[in-house]
Nucleic acid binder design. Structure first.
Lengths: 261, 261
DNA sequence: GATTGGATCTCGGGC
DNA sequence: GCCCGAGGTCCAATC
């Protein structure tokens, strides 16, 4: 059962798994691929295509990709992905909410995906398809993720002294004319503090962000000084210089409690 | 040939396409999936798995995803993607350069992917696999994309007057202590100008970025005024306020020549 | 719908 | 390797 592979140059293979619906065609005629896509789109199934195709995109930008062999994924929520054999990002795609369609044009299979607001079109032209599959995926679980900026915030709110002895957190997402401050509070002397949180090492952009908030607070309270503290695991050299030139401060903290075993 | 599907509850299907190597197992024993993965990893092929699995990730952050049916893609460059039936982004992944391995543990198939620098681990535990495929994708084409910030830069360099009459572009990526300026130049009066380009509508972050560059230039030339111009198709209200409060300017331009047909 | 900023962002270029 | 900013960023939360 485990070792005896049988090599079959099949031109049309249809299989239906009992537990997890997977219907697949191997080396199919484009006509059959069209039917599979129509059925899959109608039933709200996920579809994977492997084949040689060219791709044209027009929308927020525009692109052209000459023919090559790729993996195409159409999700029931309107997502479309085109993956090459390298890179984490799809070479082309459509976001969720797009509408997929398929048509046969002479000896080419054309998969089209259209989105509105903004209007975007993706056209995939297949010359050959090596594999086409319909997948009905049942997945109700939710991802539990730790180590986000939100975890860093909770860590500070649970024990404000880890930021600075006597720190008093008074608000989160406190609004300013420049945007919301992650944590707004006061130091032991009652001086206002704007705290900007980052879950990882920060560069100049985070300093600019904190500076905008501090300046917005100072504009509202002329004459009264406001401290700005950037909280992150670490900071780059250029960001350190910017912090100094703006009179801002840095405190090193990670989202996760350090392992003190 | 087109309509006569045959329904076969196949437990082991192996097909080898001539033109485009695609080897696939449908509803296989986990032992066979392990062999397919080992072979695929060794030959540098792309692999797709469809099945019910749980996923644990630990690295820059950490996450746990309870069992569910998903599509897993392993690329020969070390990329690993786990896709659910919705969303454009994979629910879990490993970046290119990771090392994949597989092992059979009792009645579970475990696919592991490890990366170093930073160290990250991804572990996928399959209870059942509905489909496993090896793909050898031949794709030498390169994506041609239009409408990038680089196109906007070229547009201005080709005709500086579209930014402002008499503008003189003197350098691109001109270095400052706060980072490189997209275009550095002078106006008709000889006043220095820092130009920050964005291919799409901009918010407060772009204003902060431009402001950092302008302040860096002014720090180098005390007393001498420096203009800052943000170039983008449009700008949000809050960004407009920030521009005003910082004494910066805005010019509306898109990466693409407007259609004047 | 527009806005805003986080993200295991990814990715490329420069040093 | 780190740093830095672009991206068809995607995405959720908020207004």
């Amino acid at each position: 059962m485990s070792s005896g592979y049988t090599t079959e140059p099949t031109t049309l293979v249809w299989t239906q798994t009992a537990g997890m619906p997977v219907s697949s065609l191997t080396d199919p005629a484009l006509e059959d691929v069209r039917d599979l896509l129509d059925t899959g789109f109608e039933h709200g199934e996920m579809i994977t295509l492997v084949g040689r195709c060219a791709i044209d995109y027009d929308g927020r930008a525009s692109s052209h990709l000459p023919p090559g062999e790729r993996l195409v994924i159409c999700k029931p929520d309107g997502t479309l992905l085109v993956h090459r054999d390298e890179q984490r990002k799809p070479v082309n795609w459509q976001p969720p909410g797009s509408t997929h369609s398929v048509c046969l044009d002479d000896d080419r299979l054309i998969v089209e995906s259209v989105r509105s607001s903004p209007h975007e079109e993706l056209e995939i032209t297949f010359k050959t398809v090596a594999q086409a599959s319909r997948l009905e995926l049942d997945d109700m679980s939710e991802l539990a993720l730790e180590g986000s900026e939100e975890d860093l915030r909770q860590r500070i709110l649970a024990d404000p002294d880890i930021l600075e002895t006597g720190f008093n957190a008074m608000a989160t997402e406190r609004e300013t004319s420049a945007g919301p401050i992650d944590i707004y509070g006061q130091d032991a002397d009652g001086t206002p503090i704007a705290v900007e949180l980052k879950r990882r090492r920060v560069g100049p952009d985070a300093v600019g962000q904190l500076n905008r908030y501090v300046e917005a607070l100072e504009r509202n309270r002329p004459g009264k000084s406001v401290r700005g503290i950037l909280v992150a695991p670490s900071v780059t050299e250029r960001a350190t210089e910017l912090l100094a030139s703006e009179g801002l401060e840095f405190v090193s903290l990670t989202p996760e409690q350090a392992d003190t075993s």
